Amino acid sequence: MTATTPLLIPGLSVLAPSYRAILCDVWGVLHNGVAAFAPACEALAAFRRETGAPVVLITNAPRPNPPVKAQLASLGVPRDAFDEVVTSGDVTRDAITALDGAPIQHIGPERDLTLFEGFANPLVGEEDAQAVVCTGLVDDENETPESYRPAFERMIARGLTFICANPDIVVERGDKLVWCAGALARLYEDMGGKVTIVGKPHTPIYNLAIARAEAAAGAPLERSSILAIGDGLPTDIRGAYANSLDVLFITGGIHGADFGPAGAPEEDLVRKRLAEEGLRARAAIPELRW
Protein backbone atom coordinates (compact mmCIF):
# COMPACT_ATOMS: atom_id res chain seq x y z
CA MET A 1 0.00 0.00 0.00
CA THR A 2 1.45 3.35 -1.03
CA ALA A 3 1.05 6.64 0.79
CA THR A 4 -1.45 7.77 -1.87
CA THR A 5 -3.69 4.72 -1.50
CA PRO A 6 -6.82 5.67 0.47
CA LEU A 7 -6.59 4.36 4.02
CA LEU A 8 -10.31 4.61 4.79
CA ILE A 9 -12.49 1.93 3.24
CA PRO A 10 -16.29 1.53 3.03
CA GLY A 11 -16.40 -2.00 4.42
CA LEU A 12 -14.70 -5.31 5.12
CA SER A 13 -15.88 -6.65 1.75
CA VAL A 14 -13.12 -4.59 0.10
CA LEU A 15 -10.43 -6.58 1.90
CA ALA A 16 -12.10 -9.97 2.28
CA PRO A 17 -10.84 -11.61 -0.95
CA SER A 18 -7.22 -11.06 0.14
CA TYR A 19 -7.38 -13.03 3.40
CA ARG A 20 -7.88 -16.62 4.54
CA ALA A 21 -8.63 -15.86 8.20
CA ILE A 22 -9.54 -13.02 10.55
CA LEU A 23 -8.47 -12.40 14.14
CA CYS A 24 -10.99 -9.90 15.49
CA ASP A 25 -11.01 -7.90 18.70
CA VAL A 26 -14.22 -8.05 20.71
CA TRP A 27 -14.88 -5.18 23.11
CA GLY A 28 -15.18 -1.93 21.15
CA VAL A 29 -15.51 -3.74 17.81
CA LEU A 30 -18.31 -6.29 18.29
CA HIS A 31 -19.94 -4.80 21.39
CA ASN A 32 -19.61 -2.01 23.94
CA GLY A 33 -20.18 -4.08 27.05
CA VAL A 34 -23.92 -3.42 26.91
CA ALA A 35 -25.07 -4.58 23.48
CA ALA A 36 -23.68 -6.07 20.28
CA PHE A 37 -23.00 -3.94 17.20
CA ALA A 38 -25.21 -5.57 14.57
CA PRO A 39 -23.30 -4.32 11.48
CA ALA A 40 -20.01 -5.62 12.90
CA CYS A 41 -21.48 -9.04 13.67
CA GLU A 42 -22.97 -9.26 10.20
CA ALA A 43 -19.63 -8.28 8.65
CA LEU A 44 -17.87 -11.23 10.28
CA ALA A 45 -20.72 -13.58 9.43
CA ALA A 46 -20.58 -12.39 5.82
CA PHE A 47 -16.82 -12.95 5.69
CA ARG A 48 -17.25 -16.53 6.87
CA ARG A 49 -20.16 -17.09 4.48
CA GLU A 50 -18.58 -15.53 1.39
CA THR A 51 -15.02 -16.83 1.78
CA GLY A 52 -15.43 -20.02 3.81
CA ALA A 53 -12.55 -18.75 5.96
CA PRO A 54 -12.50 -18.78 9.77
CA VAL A 55 -12.91 -15.92 12.23
CA VAL A 56 -11.24 -16.19 15.63
CA LEU A 57 -12.17 -13.60 18.22
CA ILE A 58 -9.11 -12.48 20.18
CA THR A 59 -9.83 -10.59 23.36
CA ASN A 60 -8.02 -9.30 26.41
CA ALA A 61 -10.87 -10.53 28.60
CA PRO A 62 -9.16 -11.98 31.69
CA ARG A 63 -11.42 -15.05 31.86
CA PRO A 64 -11.18 -18.38 30.02
CA ASN A 65 -13.16 -18.52 26.80
CA PRO A 66 -16.29 -20.45 27.92
CA PRO A 67 -17.74 -17.62 30.07
CA VAL A 68 -16.71 -15.10 27.41
CA LYS A 69 -18.68 -17.05 24.81
CA ALA A 70 -21.66 -16.98 27.18
CA GLN A 71 -21.26 -13.23 27.60
CA LEU A 72 -21.17 -12.74 23.82
CA ALA A 73 -24.43 -14.64 23.47
CA SER A 74 -26.05 -12.58 26.22
CA LEU A 75 -25.06 -9.36 24.45
CA GLY A 76 -26.52 -10.54 21.14
CA VAL A 77 -23.39 -11.58 19.21
CA PRO A 78 -24.64 -14.36 16.92
CA ARG A 79 -22.78 -17.66 16.82
CA ASP A 80 -22.35 -17.51 13.05
CA ALA A 81 -20.08 -14.46 13.44
CA PHE A 82 -17.09 -16.50 14.64
CA ASP A 83 -15.50 -19.93 14.81
CA GLU A 84 -13.57 -19.70 18.07
CA VAL A 85 -12.62 -17.35 20.91
CA VAL A 86 -9.15 -16.92 22.41
CA THR A 87 -8.83 -14.84 25.56
CA SER A 88 -6.10 -13.30 27.62
CA GLY A 89 -7.45 -15.50 30.39
CA ASP A 90 -6.61 -18.60 28.33
CA VAL A 91 -2.98 -17.45 28.16
CA THR A 92 -2.93 -16.32 31.80
CA ARG A 93 -3.73 -19.88 32.86
CA ASP A 94 -0.37 -20.92 31.40
CA ALA A 95 1.30 -18.27 33.59
CA ILE A 96 -0.56 -19.58 36.65
CA THR A 97 0.59 -23.12 35.86
CA ALA A 98 4.17 -21.83 35.93
CA LEU A 99 3.66 -20.65 39.53
CA ASP A 100 3.65 -24.33 40.55
CA GLY A 101 0.96 -24.10 43.21
CA ALA A 102 2.21 -20.92 44.90
CA PRO A 103 -0.43 -18.88 46.79
CA ILE A 104 -1.91 -16.05 44.73
CA GLN A 105 -3.49 -12.74 45.58
CA HIS A 106 -6.24 -11.96 43.08
CA ILE A 107 -6.94 -8.32 42.30
CA GLY A 108 -10.16 -7.97 40.36
CA PRO A 109 -13.91 -8.50 40.49
CA GLU A 110 -15.48 -11.77 41.61
CA ARG A 111 -16.82 -12.40 38.09
CA ASP A 112 -13.25 -13.23 37.02
CA LEU A 113 -12.75 -16.07 39.51
CA THR A 114 -13.39 -18.64 36.77
CA LEU A 115 -9.81 -17.89 35.72
CA PHE A 116 -8.54 -19.90 38.70
CA GLU A 117 -10.80 -22.93 38.41
CA GLY A 118 -8.92 -26.22 38.39
CA PHE A 119 -5.74 -24.86 39.97
CA ALA A 120 -4.34 -25.93 43.34
CA ASN A 121 -2.97 -22.42 43.99
CA PRO A 122 -4.75 -21.03 47.07
CA LEU A 123 -6.20 -17.53 46.72
CA VAL A 124 -4.95 -15.58 49.71
CA GLY A 125 -4.63 -12.08 51.09
CA GLU A 126 -1.78 -9.72 50.41
CA GLU A 127 0.28 -10.83 53.42
CA ASP A 128 0.42 -14.50 52.38
CA ALA A 129 0.70 -14.14 48.60
CA GLN A 130 3.78 -15.14 46.60
CA ALA A 131 2.44 -13.61 43.38
CA VAL A 132 -0.35 -11.30 42.25
CA VAL A 133 -2.73 -12.01 39.39
CA CYS A 134 -4.71 -8.95 38.32
CA THR A 135 -7.82 -9.18 36.16
CA GLY A 136 -8.99 -5.61 36.74
CA LEU A 137 -10.00 -3.17 39.43
CA VAL A 138 -12.15 -4.64 42.16
CA ASP A 139 -14.69 -1.82 41.68
CA ASP A 140 -14.06 -0.21 38.31
CA GLU A 141 -17.10 2.04 38.70
CA ASN A 142 -15.60 3.91 41.66
CA GLU A 143 -11.88 3.13 41.94
CA THR A 144 -8.94 4.48 39.95
CA PRO A 145 -5.41 3.09 39.64
CA GLU A 146 -4.26 5.54 42.31
CA SER A 147 -6.55 3.75 44.77
CA TYR A 148 -4.01 0.90 44.70
CA ARG A 149 -0.78 2.86 45.26
CA PRO A 150 -0.45 2.15 49.02
CA ALA A 151 -0.98 -1.60 48.52
CA PHE A 152 1.42 -1.64 45.57
CA GLU A 153 4.14 -0.06 47.72
CA ARG A 154 3.86 -2.96 50.15
CA MET A 155 3.74 -5.60 47.39
CA ILE A 156 6.79 -4.18 45.62
CA ALA A 157 8.71 -4.05 48.90
CA ARG A 158 8.05 -7.81 49.21
CA GLY A 159 9.18 -8.45 45.64
CA LEU A 160 5.85 -9.84 44.41
CA THR A 161 5.52 -10.38 40.66
CA PHE A 162 2.39 -8.80 39.19
CA ILE A 163 0.77 -10.91 36.46
CA CYS A 164 -1.59 -8.79 34.35
CA ALA A 165 -4.37 -10.81 32.77
CA ASN A 166 -5.76 -7.91 30.70
CA PRO A 167 -3.31 -5.45 29.11
CA ASP A 168 -6.08 -2.96 28.19
CA ILE A 169 -5.72 0.42 29.91
CA VAL A 170 -9.34 1.44 29.45
CA VAL A 171 -12.39 -0.03 27.76
CA GLU A 172 -15.77 1.33 26.72
CA ARG A 173 -18.72 0.32 28.85
CA GLY A 174 -21.77 1.79 27.21
CA ASP A 175 -21.03 5.49 26.77
CA LYS A 176 -18.14 5.77 29.24
CA LEU A 177 -14.58 4.53 29.70
CA VAL A 178 -13.57 2.37 32.65
CA TRP A 179 -10.11 1.43 33.90
CA CYS A 180 -8.72 -2.05 33.18
CA ALA A 181 -5.94 -4.23 34.60
CA GLY A 182 -3.40 -2.76 32.18
CA ALA A 183 -3.65 0.56 33.99
CA LEU A 184 -2.77 -1.14 37.28
CA ALA A 185 0.13 -3.00 35.65
CA ARG A 186 1.48 0.27 34.27
CA LEU A 187 1.37 1.88 37.72
CA TYR A 188 2.99 -1.17 39.37
CA GLU A 189 5.82 -1.11 36.84
CA ASP A 190 6.24 2.67 37.10
CA MET A 191 6.63 2.23 40.86
CA GLY A 192 9.46 -0.25 40.31
CA GLY A 193 7.57 -3.55 40.49
CA LYS A 194 8.10 -6.60 38.29
CA VAL A 195 5.26 -7.12 35.82
CA THR A 196 4.36 -10.01 33.52
CA ILE A 197 1.75 -9.08 30.91
CA VAL A 198 -0.15 -11.58 28.77
CA GLY A 199 -2.70 -10.90 26.05
CA LYS A 200 -2.49 -8.35 23.26
CA PRO A 201 -0.09 -6.96 22.12
CA HIS A 202 2.14 -9.84 23.25
CA THR A 203 3.03 -12.84 21.11
CA PRO A 204 1.57 -15.80 23.09
CA ILE A 205 -2.07 -14.83 22.52
CA TYR A 206 -1.44 -14.39 18.79
CA ASN A 207 0.27 -17.76 18.52
CA LEU A 208 -2.69 -19.42 20.22
CA ALA A 209 -5.23 -17.55 18.09
CA ILE A 210 -3.42 -18.45 14.87
CA ALA A 211 -3.26 -22.09 15.93
CA ARG A 212 -7.04 -22.03 16.49
CA ALA A 213 -7.56 -20.39 13.09
CA GLU A 214 -5.43 -23.06 11.42
CA ALA A 215 -7.42 -25.78 13.15
CA ALA A 216 -10.66 -24.23 11.90
CA ALA A 217 -9.25 -23.80 8.40
CA GLY A 218 -7.84 -27.31 8.34
CA ALA A 219 -4.54 -26.05 6.95
CA PRO A 220 -1.49 -23.96 7.86
CA LEU A 221 -1.88 -20.21 7.38
CA GLU A 222 0.77 -17.74 6.32
CA ARG A 223 0.69 -14.63 8.47
CA SER A 224 0.34 -12.52 5.34
CA SER A 225 -3.01 -14.24 4.75
CA ILE A 226 -4.46 -13.27 8.15
CA LEU A 227 -6.21 -9.97 8.83
CA ALA A 228 -6.41 -8.62 12.38
CA ILE A 229 -9.20 -6.19 13.30
CA GLY A 230 -9.18 -3.91 16.33
CA ASP A 231 -9.67 -0.46 17.80
CA GLY A 232 -6.88 -0.18 20.40
CA LEU A 233 -3.60 1.30 19.24
CA PRO A 234 -1.44 -0.04 22.12
CA THR A 235 -3.01 -3.51 22.02
CA ASP A 236 -4.77 -4.46 18.77
CA ILE A 237 -2.79 -2.37 16.30
CA ARG A 238 0.59 -2.71 17.98
CA GLY A 239 0.02 -6.43 18.53
CA ALA A 240 -0.83 -7.05 14.89
CA TYR A 241 2.14 -4.97 13.74
CA ALA A 242 4.55 -6.73 16.09
CA ASN A 243 3.29 -10.14 15.00
CA SER A 244 3.53 -9.48 11.24
CA LEU A 245 -0.23 -9.28 10.62
CA ASP A 246 -2.14 -6.83 8.48
CA VAL A 247 -4.70 -4.90 10.50
CA LEU A 248 -7.98 -3.10 9.90
CA PHE A 249 -8.10 -0.18 12.35
CA ILE A 250 -11.55 0.60 13.77
CA THR A 251 -11.19 4.34 14.37
CA GLY A 252 -14.49 4.90 16.16
CA GLY A 253 -13.53 2.85 19.23
CA ILE A 254 -11.57 4.05 22.25
CA HIS A 255 -9.60 6.57 20.14
CA GLY A 256 -12.65 7.89 18.28
CA ALA A 257 -12.43 11.41 19.71
CA ASP A 258 -8.91 11.84 18.27
CA PHE A 259 -9.92 11.72 14.62
CA GLY A 260 -12.79 14.17 14.26
CA PRO A 261 -16.44 13.08 13.95
CA ALA A 262 -16.76 9.45 15.07
CA GLY A 263 -18.59 8.40 11.92
CA ALA A 264 -16.44 10.43 9.55
CA PRO A 265 -12.81 10.36 10.71
CA GLU A 266 -10.27 12.61 9.02
CA GLU A 267 -7.83 10.40 7.19
CA ASP A 268 -4.92 12.79 7.72
CA LEU A 269 -5.43 12.60 11.49
CA VAL A 270 -5.54 8.80 11.39
CA ARG A 271 -2.35 8.61 9.33
CA LYS A 272 -0.62 11.13 11.61
CA ARG A 273 -1.51 9.18 14.76
CA LEU A 274 -0.32 5.88 13.29
CA ALA A 275 2.97 7.51 12.28
CA GLU A 276 3.42 9.03 15.75
CA GLU A 277 2.91 5.60 17.30
CA GLY A 278 5.35 3.95 14.85
CA LEU A 279 2.52 1.76 13.53
CA ARG A 280 0.76 1.07 10.27
CA ALA A 281 -2.61 -0.29 9.22
CA ARG A 282 -3.73 -2.03 6.05
CA ALA A 283 -6.90 0.06 6.17
CA ALA A 284 -9.19 1.93 8.52
CA ILE A 285 -12.94 2.27 8.99
CA PRO A 286 -15.07 4.08 11.61
CA GLU A 287 -16.94 0.92 12.61
CA LEU A 288 -16.80 -2.63 11.35
CA ARG A 289 -19.30 -3.29 8.58
CA TRP A 290 -19.43 -5.44 5.46
Rank of each mutant, 00 (worst) to 15 (best):
T5V: 04
G11L: 01
G11Y: 03
S13D: 11
V14W: 02
A16R: 01
A16H: 08
A16G: 07
A21H: 01
I22C: 06
I22G: 02
C24D: 06
D25P: 14
D25N: 15
V26C: 15
G28F: 15
V29F: 11
N32T: 08
G33L: 14
V34S: 10
E42G: 07
L44C: 11
A45P: 13
R48E: 06
R48Q: 11
A53M: 06
A61L: 04
A61T: 11
R63G: 08
N65R: 15
N65M: 09
P66K: 03
P66Y: 07
V68F: 10
Q71P: 11
D80P: 14
D80V: 03
D80S: 11
E84Y: 14
V86T: 08
S88M: 05
V91G: 01
D94R: 08
A95N: 05
G101Y: 05
I104K: 00
H106V: 05
I107W: 15
T114P: 12
G118Y: 10
P122Y: 13
L123V: 02
V124R: 01
Q130R: 12
V132Q: 04
V133G: 03
D140Y: 13
E141L: 13
E141M: 11
T144N: 10
P145W: 11
E146D: 13
S147M: 09
S147V: 07
S147H: 15
S147C: 13
A151P: 13
E153Y: 13
R154K: 14
M155T: 12
A157L: 10
G159D: 12
L160R: 00
C164T: 13
C164R: 02
C164D: 15
P167E: 10
G174A: 07
K176D: 10
W179Y: 15
G182T: 09
G182L: 04
L184I: 05
L187G: 03
L187Y: 08
Y188I: 00
G192D: 09
K200A: 04
N207Q: 15
N207E: 14
A209D: 07
A209C: 13
R212P: 12
E214L: 07
E214F: 10
A217I: 01
I229V: 15
D231W: 09
D236V: 00
I237D: 02
R238I: 02
A240M: 08
Y241P: 07
A242T: 01
D246E: 06
V247L: 03
L248R: 02
T251A: 02
G256V: 06
A257L: 12
G260W: 07
P261K: 02
P261Q: 00
G263D: 13
E266T: 04
E267P: 14
E276S: 09
G278Y: 12
R282V: 02
E287C: 08
